[in-house]
């Protein structure tokens, strides 16, 4: 129980770290770490609730989010020569402040919902909601395409966490489906990046603004 709470807090901490991280390469590392903590928390829930199918889910998370996707993203970064690229983020404290507001909102939101859930849910659901909101905030604040993808993936982490703790995991089929979706999405986005860069010589998303019709 305590372990799940600790891991949940770590997940929240990592979300904030991602929000404040400027370097894209480090962002991917943080994402991998988040995946690892997520897998660990799934295992913890599985152990405490005695649910075997959650072990598979944890393994899936480990394989996909700790190994495969980060590897893919790192290769992408290497291919696109982005190792030392940083986001030009203005006012990180402001973003953190907004994040803090979101956390309070999420925690408050979780209070009534969690009354219906069982024991694990009560606290962790708030954190899961906060993770999703923080990832969205991160995507809003970023300009580089790669960090947007990481934000998207982190959002999915939040969803999975909510699912494991609130409803003790989704049916295996759904989970596989989502995993596949995420993987395919990431691959498509990777391909997309090359296209963007060929077109604009840059991965700054603001160039896409020129595509609109006037």
């Amino acid at each position: 129980m305590q372990l799940v709470e600790l891991l949940a807090s770590l997940l929240l901490l990592l979300s904030f770290a991602m929000l404040a991280q400027r370097r894209i390469a480090s962002l991917v590392n943080l994402f991998a770490l988040q995946g690892a903590v997520l897998a660990a928390s799934t295992v913890a829930v599985a152990a405490s609730a005695g649910l075997h199918h959650l072990y598979y889910s944890a393994a899936l998370t480990l394989a996909l989010k700790v190994l495969l996707l980060p590897y893919f993203l790192r290769r992408l970064i290497a291919r696109l020569d982005l190792q030392w690229d940083t986001e030009t983020l203005a006012r990180i404290p402001m973003q953190m402040l907004a994040g803090l507001g979101l956390v309070i909102f999420a925690f408050g939101l979780a209070q009534p919902i969690s009354r219906f859930g069982h024991e694990i849910t009560r606290e962790t659901l708030g954190i899961a909601i906060a993770m999703v909101l923080l990832s969205l905030l991160m995507m809003i604040g970023r300009r580089k395409a790669v960090s947007q993808v990481v934000g998207f993936l982190a959002l999915e982490n939040g969803m999975v966490f909510a699912a494991t703790t609130a409803t003790q995991g989704m049916p295996m089929v759904v989970e596989f489906g989502i995993a596949l979706d995420v993987l395919v999405g990431a691959v498509i986005l990777g391909v997309f990046f090359f296209q963007i860069r060929e077109q604009f010589d840059s991965l700054e998303l603001r160039h896409l603004e020129t595509l609109k019709e006037d």
């Binding site: 803090l100 309070i104 925690f107 408050g108 209070q111 009534p112």
Partner: peptide, 10 residues
């Protein structure tokens, strides 16, 4: 009071 008891310590 929910919400309030989180905001006030902040």
């Amino acid at each position: 009071l929910p919400f309030v008891n989180m905001l006030v310590p902040v």
